[in-house]
Computed example of a mutant assay.
Amino acid sequence: MDTQHVLITGGAQGVGLEIARRFLAQGARVTITGRNKARLAEAMAELGESDDAGQFAGDVADEDAVKALFDAATAARGPVTVLVNNAGISGSAPLGRMTTDHFDQMLAVNARGPFLCSREAAGPMGKNGGGRIINIASTAGLKGYAYVAGYVASKHAVVGLTRALALELAGKAITVNAICPGFIETPMTVETIRNIVEKTGRSEEEARAELVKFNPQKRLIEVDEIADCALWLASDAARSVNGQVIAIDGGESA
């Protein structure tokens, strides 16, 4: 991994931060990005002072910001060889109360973001002998869930993008794969539980149980499970794994 430069969107917390931590431990150079500057600073403090790690604040849904991100990351740590499209947002509302702004925001961050970042990464990867694009999607990209139509639509879009780009970029030695976790023990899930409590009057324990019941193993997925899969997809062992959608959900999507 010591020749890799890994760019991780949404890298300031949760899954993204764990992936950054694990790649650094393997000797890779890492750039994390996110919209919250304070959270990025906290993440960098957790990762430790190192020339191999850096951060950039920006919105992955903004075309100019994405170009600036890749320019800055490349100038600091060399061409990006592994892109992890992890940045994402969630939100819920019944269809009748779901606004177009809500729906458009889900698509902008969760689908347009991976598209913009993949487009920016693919050109240099192709010129430099190949690379890996890893999209962190969701079981919501494989099935439906009630009250999150915008989120589900955006994650289905990520799965479709993964499959299309895998075929298009295969001849350039670039693999494109997606990881589809079930509910994970992350700040995003904490926010989901809070929303359930507020909207239904259930206790936090009851709300958590609502999410856990989707997993046949009766637990939430841990961030290290996602990071392990990302490390493998970036390794030489996965050089022929392309266009795959890997569910990490305890069997929910079986």
Rank of each mutant, 00 (worst) to 15 (best):
C229H: 14
K172Y: 13
G123E: 14
S50M: 06
G129V: 14
G91Q: 09
A12F: 04
A237V: 00
T189L: 15
A45N: 09
R219W: 08
A75H: 07
G123D: 15
V212M: 09
T162E: 10
G58S: 11
E63S: 02
V212S: 13
P94A: 13
N36W: 13
L69C: 04
V80C: 12
V241R: 04
G251M: 05
N195G: 12
V6C: 10
M106R: 01
D2G: 10
H5A: 07
I179E: 04
A20S: 15
G48D: 05
E18W: 13
I89R: 10
N195V: 11
P79T: 02
E252R: 14
L169N: 03
D236Y: 00
F56L: 11
G27I: 15
T33H: 01
G160H: 01
D71Y: 04
Q105A: 13
G171T: 01
D104N: 03
D228H: 11
Q55V: 07
V159A: 09
T31E: 02
D228T: 15
R132T: 14
A237N: 00
V60Y: 08
G78C: 02
A247M: 09
P124K: 12
A146L: 09
Q26G: 02
V212Y: 13
A254H: 09
K67E: 08
A178P: 03
K213E: 06
A72L: 08
Q13E: 09
I221T: 11
R194K: 04
L116H: 13
A75R: 05
V66D: 05
V66N: 00
L47Y: 12
M106W: 01
A28I: 10
A170Q: 03
H102C: 09
V197Q: 02
R22K: 10
V6F: 02
A170Y: 03
D2E: 10
G78I: 08
P79N: 02
L83C: 06
G123T: 14
N215T: 07
C229K: 12
V190M: 04
Q13Y: 07
V241M: 14
A65K: 08
R97T: 08
D52G: 15
G27F: 12
